[in-house]
Amino acid sequence: MSPERATEHPAAAAAAEPGNAYEALNEGDDPRWAYGTGFADPLAGVDTRVPSGVDAADLAGYCLMLGDDALVMSHRLQEWCTRAPELEEEVALANIALDLLGQARLLLSRAGAAEGAGRDEDALAYLRDPGGFRNVRLVEAENGDFGHAMARLLVFAAWRLALLDRLAGSRDPVLAAVAAKGVKEVAYHRDYAAGWVVRLGDGTAYSRERMAAGLAAVWPLVPELFARHEVEARLAAAGVAADPAGLRAEFDQVLDQVLTAATLARPPERPGPVRAAGRAGEHTPALATLLAELQSVARAHPGAAW
């Protein structure tokens, strides 16, 4: 999901020679060769019209929520490139980030189409200020150590997998198609994170300490995942969205199973009501810092192509 670069890619000259590797990467009409080529389109043959009786503005807002979750989490995972404990983990985290970036592209494109204001996925990703983002605050928090990263990924993936599993039956055919593809991806994300949580939690005294600290840092952001925004409530009643409050039981069951295997205790939660603050555009300063980096090239060179 990059702005198109104005100058030709250095490898483009090689594409003129038939049968080379770059040409194979660049099959299809999408000029963004680094992502989205050579894969089956999950929306092929899907009716992209807004379902009857569904408010287009609500649908656009909901797709922004889900797309922003994926986009911001993808960026946080990409920040682990060159920083993970092993090269294999860098590759794994980069692949997970790419899965989420793919989900973000589809969801932001759906949001722009439903909104009808002429904004495409790039405009939504690169040209909104922090207050226009609708992601949960879990994904925007600054990275900590590897234990923190695995705690956040486990929490995020367990929650998102439960969400996507329900959205596979959405009345909106586009959401249903995106969710059906995403379930397969996020199931791996959850299992990958769970494996590391168990490995670190049931490992050495130091790894256990770091894993417990990561969970403690992430846990205050968990209740917001299940707070219901008014858009989610309306679309859940219309059979389009998933009620976030209904995801908690499955989430708890998964986390209890993983934490038991990791010999770790569940961190305590603060009692009292919780608002869907991120869904309402209320964010921490960490999001502004993240977006300053994510959006810097697009804002410095508006309309550029690459």
Rank of each mutant, 00 (worst) to 15 (best):
residue 90 E to C: 11
residue 95 N to P: 03
residue 90 E to T: 11
residue 37 T to E: 15
residue 72 V to E: 01
residue 73 M to L: 11
residue 77 L to Q: 00
residue 14 A to Q: 14
residue 92 A to C: 05
residue 51 P to C: 09
residue 80 W to E: 07
residue 6 A to S: 11
residue 32 R to Y: 14
residue 104 A to P: 15
residue 5 R to S: 05
residue 8 E to M: 03
residue 34 A to L: 14
residue 25 L to V: 00
residue 70 A to Y: 06
residue 39 F to K: 10
residue 40 A to D: 05
residue 13 A to E: 02
residue 9 H to D: 03
residue 63 C to H: 02
residue 96 I to Q: 11
residue 72 V to S: 03
residue 97 A to M: 10
residue 51 P to M: 06
residue 56 A to F: 04
residue 75 H to N: 13
residue 66 L to F: 09
residue 48 T to Q: 14
residue 101 L to V: 14
residue 36 G to Q: 05
residue 89 E to F: 12
residue 99 D to E: 00
residue 82 T to D: 09
residue 89 E to V: 10
residue 97 A to L: 11
residue 46 V to T: 04
residue 34 A to H: 10
residue 76 R to C: 06
residue 92 A to G: 09
residue 73 M to N: 06
residue 33 W to H: 03
residue 93 L to Y: 00
residue 77 L to G: 00
residue 43 L to Q: 12
residue 60 A to P: 13
residue 81 C to S: 13
residue 104 A to T: 00
residue 103 Q to P: 15
residue 16 A to K: 12
residue 58 D to P: 02
residue 49 R to F: 04
residue 9 H to K: 12
residue 22 Y to K: 06
residue 5 R to G: 09
residue 39 F to Y: 12
residue 50 V to Y: 13
residue 44 A to Q: 02
residue 48 T to S: 07
residue 76 R to L: 13
residue 21 A to L: 14
residue 102 G to M: 04
residue 43 L to I: 02
residue 35 Y to H: 10
residue 62 Y to S: 04
residue 5 R to T: 12
residue 45 G to I: 04
residue 68 D to A: 08
residue 81 C to G: 09
residue 76 R to A: 05
residue 55 D to C: 12
residue 104 A to E: 07
residue 16 A to I: 02
residue 68 D to H: 03
residue 30 D to G: 02
residue 68 D to N: 13
residue 61 G to P: 00
residue 62 Y to C: 03
residue 54 V to K: 00
residue 100 L to T: 08
residue 103 Q to D: 04
residue 91 V to S: 01
residue 105 R to M: 07
residue 29 D to A: 12
residue 72 V to G: 02
